[in-house]
Design a binder for these strands. Sequence first.
DNA 1: GCAATTTGGTAAAACGATACACTTAAAATC
DNA 2: GATTTTAAGTGTATCGTTTTACCAAATTGC
Lengths: 383, 383
Amino acid sequence: MRFSGTLGDLNVMPPKSGSPTDAAERVTIQDVAKAASVSVSSVSNYMNNRFHRLGTETRTRIATAIAELDFRPNQAARQLKTGKARVIALVVPSIVNPFNGQMVFSIEQAAVKAGYRVHLCNTMRDPKLEKEFLDNLAAIGVADLITIAPLNTRRGYYSAWSDLSIVAVDANRLDLKLARLDTVNLDHEAAIGMAVEHLFALGHRRIAYVTDPLITHSRVMRLSGFKKAMKDRELDDSQAVVLERHQSALDIADAQMVEVGRDAASDVAALSPRPTAIIAFNDMIALGLLATFRSAGIAVPKDMSIIGVDDAWISQLSFPALTTIRQPIEAMAAAAVESVLKPSAAPTSAGSDTIFLPELVIRDTCAKPQEEVATHIRKRRLE
Amino acid sequence: MRFSGTLGDLNVMPPKSGSPTDAAERVTIQDVAKAASVSVSSVSNYMNNRFHRLGTETRTRIATAIAELDFRPNQAARQLKTGKARVIALVVPSIVNPFNGQMVFSIEQAAVKAGYRVHLCNTMRDPKLEKEFLDNLAAIGVADLITIAPLNTRRGYYSAWSDLSIVAVDANRLDLKLARLDTVNLDHEAAIGMAVEHLFALGHRRIAYVTDPLITHSRVMRLSGFKKAMKDRELDDSQAVVLERHQSALDIADAQMVEVGRDAASDVAALSPRPTAIIAFNDMIALGLLATFRSAGIAVPKDMSIIGVDDAWISQLSFPALTTIRQPIEAMAAAAVESVLKPSAAPTSAGSDTIFLPELVIRDTCAKPQEEVATHIRKRRLE
DNA sequence: GCAATTTGGTAAAACGATACACTTAAAATC
DNA sequence: GATTTTAAGTGTATCGTTTTACCAAATTGC
């Protein structure tokens, strides 16, 4: 199934066993000090922006020496001394989930801007993998952790790493029960509220909600947001379908999310009276519903309106393109990075919660409910 | 647009200003040595599997001491001494591209298995970002680099980092012109060959090929594979559509790939005589084509068959589900990691090329060409 | 039984930065 | 003018490993 071959004759450079970039002599702070005729300490001060300890003359001398030698401080040495690495640990169930992928991407961009690098860990929600990763953080001097969508059953889980500065995206401090924790979240209830309002304005009255098991903060809050928004409009909120955890829940692709949608489709179609619209916990489930309805001959949006949450890039891709509620991913990523890097405030404080407002993105999967259904409902409401 | 609030009263743990996990005293190799009543050297030898230097007795003593103290060697110190970090640098245009996402995911998994961690860099194909990342690698002691789908115009680009062990996935050594380089590739020509054969066997004779600009090895090889496979069957290979680079080529989402497909759809529909089937460079483009055809009323697969390449998880999601050529992502990721970590062979060798065979995944976007078209073509061939 | 080797083990010098404790000269204060 | 303060800069111990060189005892060869 696989060939491996060594094509020795493709060597495009002459052998030159000599020394082109040979030993690649690393230039150290000592070399710089010598070149600038100053002490190592001064160079160190320069490197750490302690300019008040330096005269303008030495300062420029050091600057030119650094530039000439292309000096880059050895991070291992620096780290050994200071105990801190400029690295953010990033724990995520799986970047293959497109929303997580975008979030990780944006966090990496934000981290680089702040002069940090990112250590990635796809946990697949496997506690062993995650624990191992976290346990090794101290050994490599990492002090900052961002975790995305941790299980909400993890009470006190992160307490074991209390020396880390932790920020959780899509999580609730009460769930995690951690002494110090910052969180970054979408206003999930508002998000679903917007979805309900959009459908309501279109004329829908029988609205279902589909979610996979309530294992994260967002799942809990979106469901409760659904119930609130329905009650506010005096609508029946009983058509909330919470699915069993799918077999392949730990599969690589989060394609299982789509499976969830597939499974849900029949459940939803069986609801009586049949809803005219569905709100999905996220775009993946919405897409799964969409695909299944279409292959079952249920037209979207004519027979059924569908709306998702996230506005993962993938949702533009379906036909019809998915109407959804957008999370401001970049802003949330930036907030998470900023939050994890900011010097910890008063140690008495429990941390901050940053909440972002969602945005309705209207595409093509929502329409007015069909005549008959609409009149049917109108009749029922009049009775 | 955003609220931030400090909920100081949510502190769920008693203040306890004392010392719970307080100073978190890091346990060092010295502590272990003391506890086991042996020298530091012996512990070091133990940690580095140099068991031939140890008696069974000391060996167990050290083992228990390590377990008891939960000793984890300080990687910074180790690195400072050895100059090497157990980290693989991973350069990728963007993990948001689902295929890249899966590849990065699998590489991370393989790296962890080998005791390595992954430093991620989404370059967005921005040379500045990439250069900066690579330049800093030495400073953090990283010696191993995996780069995914680098531009094939980058002759000699990586020579500046000749002290790295470099593996390129989806790249050609001749393109990169690097002294020492291992590559991991799909057999791209075979992949397209399989696609052509599948369509040919279904009865298609007018087959188009759609690709975005030929900026990577795979893009070049798949196109050439298309031409070869068509010529082998004495078919017209002129219907290869190479699109201009799309405006948003550097967009976050690689959603532009879908745009490419969208743009291509009209070009393809305008081809005369109109092809009965299209092979897309990858699944993203195929999905773009699919979505566009369907909204234009061209039925897939009745009026037009479509086949992609990659079998990114996303391709199961479309309706109809996409027929495609699968890349064995996990195996390729494992090969890349193995390759980058293996002790470099004879320095005279130019490296190895590992090539993987693709696999046809039949779903629902390919069918026999329509009667009329089929007869029409049959007639033409008989003339 | 004595030299040569093997086995099991140790002491101490690095690795490259940081940070603490100092020094010295100039400036400011009284 | 004597004393204190500030500015600018340096020497060196230190972080926690690895590694080299070295040593003693046990084993082997002849």
